[in-house]
């Protein structure tokens, strides 16, 4: 709790207390904590003199602001039309098999979450995915096995 408070304090000092600072502050928390906890949102509400419901309403509008704890590594597979044409469903299937979860789920121990996402802007290099901030393009099942394998081995 105290930690969240400190983090929010830091971010508020950096970005300011006005409403316009809300997104950078929420993103700052997200970057550190991987999601926006209830405590964090309440602290932001207090510091910015906004209602907690409004903070939640704003956060829940955006795809990259999560309000519940999920995987340390978030795998976002692009599901837009060109990635779909280039074999997105194979990629998803490979990931599901390897992680033993379905799209929208998180592995036990909260290591990986598997998500589909709208256009990543990598349409000329599809299928594409993001794992946290890293992007991977021209995916094949074999490539996915290699990439994810490395995550499992090295970054677990």
């Amino acid at each position: 709790m105290a930690e969240v408070k400190e983090l929010v304090n830091e971010l508020v000092d950096k970005y300011g207390r006005e409403r316009k600072s809300l997104l950078p502050i929420l993103q700052g928390i997200h970057l550190e904590r991987n999601y926006l906890s209830k405590e964090a949102m309440l602290e932001v509400a207090k510091q910015l003199d906004l209602s907690a419901a409004e903070i939640y309403g704003t956060a829940s509008f955006y795809s990259f602001l999560d309000t519940k704890a999920d995987g340390k590594y978030k795998i976002r597979v692009c599901k837009s039309i060109t990635c779909e044409m280039k074999g997105k469903s194979d990629i998803i299937k490979t990931l599901e098999d390897m992680l033993k979860i379905k799209v929208g789920e998180t592995t036990e121990g909260k290591r990986f979450s598997l998500l589909e996402t709208n256009c990543l802007g990598l349409c000329d290099q599809g299928p594409a995915m993001l794992i946290n901030e890293e992007y991977y393009t021209k995916l094949t099942a074999a490539k996915v096995r290699k990439i994810l394998g490395e995550y499992i081995r090295n970054k677990y």
């Binding site: 409403r19 316009k20 809300l22 929420l26 955006y62 795809s63 990259f64 602001l65």
Partner: peptide
């Protein structure tokens, strides 16, 4: 923070103001 509609200029501005886009 991840919302297609924020490409619409007034939604983009709302978003910059810390609101829903």
């Amino acid at each position: 923070a991840g919302a297609y509609v924020c490409g619409e200029e007034t939604a983009l501005i709302e978003s910059m103001e810390g609101k829903r886009g």
